[in-house]
Design a protein around this nucleic acid. Structure first.
Length: 818
RNA sequence: GCUCGGAUGGCGGAAUUGGCAGACGCGCAGGAUUCAGGAUCCUGUGGGAGCAAUCCCGUGGGGGUUCGAAUCCCCCUCCGAGCACCA
């Protein structure tokens, strides 16, 4: 009676064995071939592990196990991103205090993660809500504060009326809160900012050399949004004390600037508005500022442009003409200088505005082929084209006829010489607002003293403990719930000893995750955030695998924090992850998974039925890992059957000793090892699995007695995907050590991996007519002779003369006849 | 609107990067086994014509380059993602 594969029994056996033998416990100080394999730690939701988590972690775990099987000491830690709005909102919904709820969720997550067979080192878990962790999050804040990279200022901020907190720009998706999808509004509050803009250029430059998924790098590039152009100054008639500075990417169109526009918040608005227009302008500014950010940002057709004339007049430095100054809310204070020179002929927004208010439009750039015979007085259609070498300036004085791209440089140079402007670069990225008027986060370690102002908490007083606050519900006040704890709020000023108050905001949860990977190797040390020797040994992270939804959030923030800590002398490197690979998204039956659709895959059900190994492998088989896949319930049986057969091949029946039985099988074995080794290295797990299946089909064909040398390498190749099964089979093959404890990955012989006989396609006039077998490397004459011997080839040659032969060695021969 | 992906059998997806399209798996059909269902095993499975050998068509649509195109170039359609009044 054949013994059947029982995943449940095999998996629980090895789960216990690994735990007893501490197989995945890494010798942090003693490891000889350190490899840091990181995956994005989850926030422990009450719903438990999502199949998306399992997908992400499995792909990363396979990578880690593969490295381990190849002789590395792989450190693969896990932790919990348990602070933050998401966790807190759930606690509110359930009416349970987060201090009670979160540990419960973490326990549940831990159980589920262990069931999946990830090779986590459970002796080094990070839980960001523990004081021994957030003490150091606060420490990082203090370091940035000292370096003047943290700054408190009043600013318009994104406010989520539902979560009742401020959000970073990165957390506003389509004008809505990324967590609860409520429309975001604008508020003016005192906020802490991290000056990530100081690092914009470096964050951009380093993208050139870090080994990351291209698409992720592109997202970051777009988000940083570098644009080159010029700052230039406009004089105001009758106000010699003011000049309006603008930023433009199109200095070549300067001669076409027929008016200027200030943002409603622009500091000069009040001062320069003429008496007659004062009431109108004041009213407009008031209305504009009352609009929330979302409404104001609605572009183009959605909302008509509005604006008012200040009555003031500026001088176009190029033409010397007087041009009117308007105020309009389509100009944003946050970008550039909050003021623009309007060139309606070459900017759609300015054009729309000019049409609406009947402002003059002057064309200054035209296609080069229209330059001959151009009449400068003629009316021309506005043209919103990119400046190319095919375009030249007109109506532009001495610059007439100059190609637009060249004119950008020449006009900028001229402005610089005149001291009226200069070349400059602008970035779209804004400073990172880290204040949150919420409860569930690390208190920002700052004290406000009436006498001394803002005083940082001395490092020796850290951590500033998050107090238990019974009613942690956020409210409309813009003041965080921590203000409700009298005991927390009132404190002595560390400087003068007088009565003072603590900062009541907590920091953004993205600050917790910006450095968690630095903590893992040092979780056992309480006197420093990370040990310098261990950091040198393990960091930067060798491979980081995670979702791309964090491209401009976590991944950008952690790069910034790493750079800042590097510059402050705390880290020997400035990029945190040597290699980053994004994984795709997993959908079900072609549709996104969501609770409302009711199509969420609960991993537990499948683990119960098929085992963790089968679920892991099936998830990887769905499609290319970096692109995601489509989960179909029936598909999992394919993997289930595959493992049944692998089991059967090893366990049932005698295995013969000696080399693989035939050269053909030996070749197939080596070719498979080569293919699987390559595919796993590049995260192409789906084709790696297909290759193993193909190999098994080959060796099982004909029901022959298998040889140990045919089967054992397969067991090793299966190990990253199905670690429990592989361990069991490894043991049954007579191995006494864990398959993961040594260098168990099979080697291949590159010569053997190539077949010595190949099929060569034969074409006649480009159409396939036959295949012939030939020795690898066979020459054209030999192949041609074989091809001509084929009956089908002869038929299509039809006795005509062969005019030309195209020969690709080992692949194809194409015979061309008249 | 801008930027970037993508479209291949009934389905998920392969294709050595310009060289036999459809690997591998699911599903389906036929057969074996079974009292039966399930499981398992064999065989077949892009479409069309033919008893057959064989032939023709075929990678979203149209054009092109090439001895040869799923792959490269141009135009179009549809789907997805990110950004969006960023001057």
């Amino acid at each position: 009676m054949a013994e059947r594969y029982d995943p449940g029994a095999v998996e629980s056996k090895w789960r216990e064995r690994w735990e007893d033998t501490e197989l995945n416990r890494v010798d942090i100080d003693g490891a000889e071939h350190p490899f840091y394999n990181l995956m994005m730690y989850p926030y422990p939701s009450a719903e438990g592990l999502h199949v998306g988590n399992v997908y992400a972690f499995t792909g990363a775990d396979i990578h880690g196990r593969f490295k381990q099987l190849n002789g590395n000491d792989v450190f693969e830690p896990i932790g919990f991103d348990a602070f933050g709005i998401h966790s807190e909102n759930f606690a509110l919904e359930q009416g349970v205090h987060p201090m009670e709820l979160i540990p419960r969720n973490i326990a549940n997550f831990t159980r589920q993660l262990k069931r999946m067979g990830f090779m986590y080192d459970w002796y080094r878990v990070v839980d960001v809500t523990q004081p021994e962790y957030y003490k150091w999050t606060q420490w990082i804040f203090l370091q940035l504060y000292k370096a003047k990279l943290a700054e408190r200022r009043k600013a318009p901020v994104n406010w989520c009326p539902s979560c009742k907190t401020v959000l970073a720009n990165e957390q506003v998706i389509d004008g809505r809160c990324e967590r609860c999808s409520t429309e975001v509004t604008q508020r003016y509050l005192d906020q802490w900012f991290f000056k990530i803009t100081d690092y914009a250029q470096r964050l951009l430059d380093n993208l050139e050399w870090i080994d990351w998924s291209e698409s992720t790098k592109r997202l970051q590039r777009n988000w940083i949004g570098r644009s080159e152009g010029a700052d230039l100054d406009f004089k105001i008639v009758g106000h010699p004390e003011y000049t309006i500075r603008v930023f433009t990417t199109r200095p070549d169109t300067l001669f076409g600037a027929t008016f200027m526009v200030l943002a409603p918040e622009h500091p000069f608005v009040d001062a320069i508005t003429v008496k007659k227009q004062r009431a109108t302008v004041e009213k407009y500014v008031k209305t504009a500022l009352a609009l929330d950010l979302v409404e104001r940002r609605k572009a183009g057709e959605e909302r008509q442009k509005t604006g008012v004339d200040t009555g003031a007049v500026a001088i176009n430095p190029a033409t010397g003409e007087e041009i009117p100054i308007w105020v309009a809310d389509y100009v944003l204070m946050e970008y550039g200088w909050g003021a623009i020179m309007a060139v309606p002929a070459h900017d759609e927004r300015d054009f729309e505005f000019a049409q609406q208010y009947e402002l003059p439009i002057r064309v200054v750039v035209i296609p080069a082929d229209q330059y001959e015979g151009f009449d400068p007085s003629a009316e021309l259609e506005a043209a919103f084209t990119e400046h190319t070498e095919d375009e030249v300036l007109v109506n532009s004085g001495v610059f007439d006829g100059v190609p637009a791209a060249k004119a950008i440089k020449e006009i900028t140079a001229w402005l610089e010489k005149e001291n009226r402007g200069n070349f400059t670069v602008n970035y779209r990225i804004h400073d990172w607002c880290i204040s949150r008027q919420r409860y569930w986060g690390p208190p920002i370690p700052v004290i406000h003293c009436e006498k001394c102002g803002t005083v940082p908490v001395p490092e020796e007083d850290l951590p500033v403990l998050l107090p238990f606050v019974e009613n942690f519900k956020p409210d409309e006040s813009g003041v965080g719930p921590l203000a409700r704890s009298e005991e927390f709020l009132h404190v002595e000023c560390p400087k003068c000893g007088g009565a003072a108050q603590r900062e009541t905001d907590v920091s953004d949860t993205f600050l917790d995750s910006a450095w968690y990977f630095m903590r893992y190797p040092s979780t056992d040390l309480q006197d420093r955030p990370f040990d310098s020797e261990r950091t040198k040994k393990w960091l930067p992270v060798d491979t980081y695998i995670g979702g791309e939804e964090h491209a401009v959030l976590h991944l950008m923030y952690s790069r910034f924090i790493t750079m800042a800590l590097h510059d402050l002398g705390h880290l020997p490197f400035e990029e945190p992850y040597k290699q980053f690979r994004k994984h795709g998204l997993i959908v079900r039956e072609g549709a996104k998974m969501s609770k409302s659709r009711g199509n969420v895959v609960i991993p537990d059900e499948y683990v119960e039925k098929y085992g963790a190994d089968t679920l892991r492998t099936y998830l990887m088989f769905l499609g290319p890992y970096e692109e995601g896949g489509d989960f179909r319930d029936q598909g999992i049986t394919g993997i289930s059957r595959f493992f049944d057969r692998v089991w059967d091949a090893v366990v049932n029946g005698e295995l013969a000793d000696g080399e693989p039985e035939t050269d053909e099988i030996n070749h197939k074995l080596h070719a498979t090892i080569k293919k699987v080794t390559g595919d796993i290295s590049t995260l192409q797990y789906n084709t790696a699995i297909a290759a193993m299946m193909e190999y098994l089909n080959v060796i099982r064909a004909g029901g022959r007695t298998l040889r140990r040398a045919e089967v054992q390498p397969l067991v090793a190749m299966v190990a990253p995907f199905a670690p429990h099964l592989a361990e069991e089979l490894w043991e049954r093959l007579g191995q006494s050590e864990s398959i993961f404890s040594g260098h168990s990955w099979p080697e291949y012989d590159p010569q053997l991996a190539m077949a010595d006989e190949v099929d060569i396609a034969v074409q006649v006039n480009g159409r396939f007519r036959a295949t012939v077998k030939a020795a690898r490397g066979a020459g054209q004459d030999e192949v041609r002779e074989k091809a001509l011997a084929e009956e089908a080839v002869q038929r299509h040659l039809d006795d005509k003369e062969i005019k030309k032969t195209i020969f690709v060695p080992d692949r194809l021969i194409n015979l061309l006849v008249g």
